[in-house]
């Protein structure tokens, strides 16, 4: 028998009114892995993440995190379980300073020493944020805001980090930097569930991947294998 997955999604169904955005999706993520969900616009990738973190309600199916059912839990309870979500489009709090944004991420931690420690860790990973410590988050550049959103998610000290389109709207050089950091965070022991439209980038970062089309998983497997797959190449890599 395989060991228990960290995150196991079974037959997940989510609808917006009459539209079924996710139609019975199943996938798993083991501890320490980077798993990517790739697919075009409207395939239901973000919906899946939003459902895992409790921002959407599932119509059916189950989401097991370390053996515990998440489907009926509220968003803030799910964060307590150790899942950090970086929502699409760099949703920082523009009215708060960089440090305050990071502290918002730690709002479930009680231990002061622990918060200071995580803060140090985040500043270590993103020295750029340290420089801008006291600046209002709304005045940061796009790349810096993405770093802040990532850093804020790290502050929750979660075991699983879910990233929704971290490359969106960023210059290629910044994207490269962000993905380097993602790999580093993974190497430090955090499992990562990654959503990306840029399939090439995602497949090069992740160890395994699932291909999503209009709410269903059509392909899955080792990312190296998917990179060589003709159908994936034709549909997502533009080859």
């Amino acid at each position: 028998m395989r060991k228990m997955a960290m995150l196991e999604v079974k037959d997940l169904k989510v609808s917006y009114g009459a539209i079924q955005a996710v139609q019975g999706v199943s996938f798993r993520l083991d501890k320490g892995e980077i798993v990517a969900l790739i697919g075009s616009n409207g395939a239901g990738k973000s919906t899946i993440l939003r459902t895992i973190s409790g921002l959407e309600r599932a119509k059916g199916g189950s989401i097991l995190f370390e053996g515990e059912e998440l489907v009926r839990l509220k968003a803030h309870k799910i964060v307590e379980r150790g899942i950090a979500h970086v929502p699409e489009g760099r949703r920082v709090f523009p009215g708060l300073t960089v440090t305050e944004n990071l502290r918002m991420g730690a709002n479930l931690l009680r231990d002061k020493a622990k918060i200071t420690e995580s803060l140090g860790k985040v500043f270590d990973i993103f020295p750029r944020l340290k420089e801008r410590e006291r600046q209002q988050a709304g005045t940061l550049s796009g790349g810096e805001q993405q770093m802040l959103a990532l850093g804020r998610a790290l502050m929750t000290e979660g075991k699983l980090l879910m990233l929704d389109e971290p490359s969106m709207g960023l210059a290629p050089i910044i994207v490269e930097e962000i993905f380097e950091v993602i790999k580093r965070i993974n190497a430090m022991g955090t499992s990562i569930l990654l959503i990306e439209q840029n399939a090439f980038l995602a497949l090069n970062t992740a160890s395994r991947a699932y291909v999503l089309e209009t709410g269903k998983i059509t392909m899955e497997g080792d990312s190296k294998a998917l990179l060589d797959d003709d159908r994936v190449k034709a549909a997502y890599l533009g080859a």
């Binding site: 964060v79 929502p87 991420g105």
Partner: peptide, 24 residues
């Protein structure tokens, strides 16, 4: 206060506040 910080976070972005574990 920390309360005010949470209020402003909700104003700035309720979804992100939710995702950060704030009981909005």
């Amino acid at each position: 206060s920390p309360f005010g910080r949470a209020f402003i976070a909700i104003r700035d972005n309720e979804v992100a506040a939710d995702a950060m574990g704030i009981n909005t």
